[in-house]
């Protein structure tokens, strides 16, 4: 049973870039052969969402709808999964994803001070992005680099032995 309202099927507002992204996602889903065992289609959901988030940067409603249709499940189920896992987000995030590790080793070595310094300098709370779309600030649990604690990740780069004093340098490094 699929939805009859044709909400995603006819979206005249898609820009060419968006259309290309949807094509890419569609090709990825097709390559998975999700219909091999129809009862187990859902097993591909998280994998598809990972790919979708890497293509779009986040998971807007339109993408959720697209994935739900591909797997023949309701959008509520897709949203339920997105809201459960901390890795997924349905809001656009800043270009520089700053993640402060707040695992135990980093915590005892002063991660909260580093996090507070980022909050103060960027004027946002954790889980938020700056209004100009440049920075996202998050806290994550243990990247497994405990010997370098406290650790900060900016996109995929790891900065070890962080102190509040080094926060300004990192932000400057991100300045274009």
């Amino acid at each position: 049973m699929s939805c009859q309202c044709q909400c995603a099927a006819t979206s005249p507002t898609r820009t060419p870039e968006d259309a290309a992204k949807f094509d890419e996602l569609g090709r990825f889903i097709a390559s998975l052969n999700v219909d091999a065992i129809p009862d187990r289609r859902r097993g591909y959901l998280i994998q598809i969402l990972h790919r979708a988030q890497s293509i779009f940067g986040y998971l807007p409603e339109e993408v959720q709808e697209f994935v739900a249709r591909a797997l023949n499940i309701s959008r509520a189920e897709v949203y339920g999964v997105i809201s459960f896992y901390s890795y997924f987000t349905d809001k656009p995030v800043g270009r520089y994803k700053i993640n402060v590790c707040t695992g135990t080793a980093c915590f005892v070595k002063g991660a909260p001070k580093v996090l507070n310094e980022f909050k103060a300098r960027l004027g946002i709370k954790e889980g938020e992005s700056t209004p100009d779309g440049k920075f996202f600030l998050g806290a994550l649990r243990c990247v497994g680099a405990c010997s370098l604690a406290p650790v900060v990740m900016v996109n995929d780069k790891v900065y070890g032995n962080m102190t509040a004093d080094k926060v300004a340098d990192i932000l400057k490094e991100c300045g274009e």
């Binding site: 339920g80 459960f84 901390s86 890795y87 994550l140």
Partner: peptide, 25 residues
């Protein structure tokens, strides 16, 4: 199969639900 950031998925029944594409409860 990939997790997506949920500590509770280390619990075996939750982990299995997550592999099945559900919330890891």
């Amino acid at each position: 199969k990939f997790g997506a950031g949920a500590f509770v998925c280390g619990e075996e029944t939750a982990l299995i639900h997550s592999i099945e594409g559900k919330r890891g409860e």
